[in-house]
Design a protein around this nucleic acid. Structure first.
Lengths: 223, 223
DNA sequence: AGTATTCGCCGCAGCTGTGCTACAAAAAAA
DNA sequence: TTTTTTTGTAGCACAGCTGCGGCGAATACT
């Protein structure tokens, strides 16, 4: 099964150079020049990795990265023109998997792509065949099938989903889900987790996505 | 194997001056100007030492030092503008390994770097090849292998780990682990220490990490 | 208005981890 | 040495945490 790399880059020469090298290494490539069409095309094409230029016509790369992260954990490598920029990006914690600085050698980029894919590859199936969330529509899909979540359930899952592996206590989750500081019992979280797990199990009984850590809280892990 | 020094300093001229001298002494250097990106870059790059300016845009140096200490024992040298400041810093017990006062000569800084590295180098293997803790994930790894700790065990180990060599009495440890001031017997600590040692021994039987001091308490020491 | 979801909580069951006890071993004090 | 104090360890009872079904109340929909 060949893997698809989506190249988001407005300079055509640069894009085609990258595409050539990637194809030589056995990847399929998709080229997108306009920032506005990235997100819909990612949803539609479901690439295995995105090479994302920071400076784009139409829309900022940071925005795009954030939006992709809000519904998918697919690997993203950011391309930036200035080396100092990378520090700033790291500080923002966008969730990109790696950063490459212009000017770069195509070989280097291919190497990084392979590294990131291998790293992600350990849980590759769950990433691609896994869960996607669309906060705009409160739409959650697992293996292509809708999960039909309520608002609270969606918020809870979405929050956990954004930082996989990280454990949150019940009170932390309450704070995030109820910005109005209303007082509810810890166990309410458990209730919603219960319903989430039920709905997830209805679609895929074999995969556990939400784990409870005794005495600590819950985490999302697509392992 | 060349060693990497991470320079955290917002004045570019000063940073590049330091970088030049350090490179001449055979070190690799990484420069970071923005305080917010320090921690993620430390995690990513894993430098051998951090030169950390106290006054930074974005985030306070004290904060950064504390956060780095929460997951790693890598050597840190603090740079401060005022000599009086140093006393205050010493009082805070941040866990920095040395302090340098502006204005400094680059030679002096290089000398200090070497001293600290040599001192740390005595137990260099335990530092790098040793234990890493990730509080967000309750994840403890020794020699790359997971330790599978429970919440209480993790908290206990994490607290000891933050100030290696320092001895804590059982009641001090209780206070830290149970913020709700619940009353438990001293010997409970012993129980958890026992389990920690067991789990550590399962991964590395040769290395003692938690020491008991007769009549005083326990300490963590990566020697 | 009525109806249908959804939310938050309760109670019970099952189980893990916790904290304690008892005794052995070690260290310090006598 | 003997005595006293402190620590190591095994084992165990149960407190506390989590999963789950269900139920009234709140909310949204018609």
């Amino acid at each position: 099964m060949t893997q698809t790399i989506m190249i988001v880059e407005d300079e055509e020469k640069l894009a085609s150079l990258l595409a050539d090298y990637l194809r030589q290494s056995g990847f399929e490539t998709v080229w997108i020049a306009d920032g506005n069409s990235v997100v819909p095309r990612v949803r539609e094409r479901q690439p295995d990795l995105v090479l994302l230029d920071l400076m784009l016509p139409g829309r900022d790369g940071l925005d795009i990265c954030k939006e992709i992260r809000s519904f998918s954990q697919l690997p993203i490598i950011m391309i930036t023109a200035r080396i100092e920029e990378i520090d700033r990006l790291l500080g923002l914690e966008l969730g990109a998997d790696d950063y490459v600085c212009k000017p770069f050698s195509p070989r280097e980029v291919v190497a990084r792509v392979k590294t990131v894919l291998r790293r992600a590859g350990d849980h590759a199936a769950p990433v691609t065949g896994g869960l996607t969330l669309d906060p705009d529509r409160y739409l959650a899909q697992l293996k292509g099938r809708d999960l039909e979540l309520t608002a609270v359930e969606f918020k809870l899952l979405h929050f956990l989903y954004q930082t996989p592996g990280r454990i949150y206590s019940r009170s932390q989750l309450m704070d995030r889900i109820y910005p109005d500081q209303r007082i509810v019992s810890d166990r309410t979280i458990d209730s919603h987790i219960k319903k989430l797990r039920k709905k997830i199990a209805a679609v895929d009984p074999d995969r556990e996505l939400i784990y409870s850590i005794y005495g600590a809280g819950y985490k999302y892990e697509p392992s």
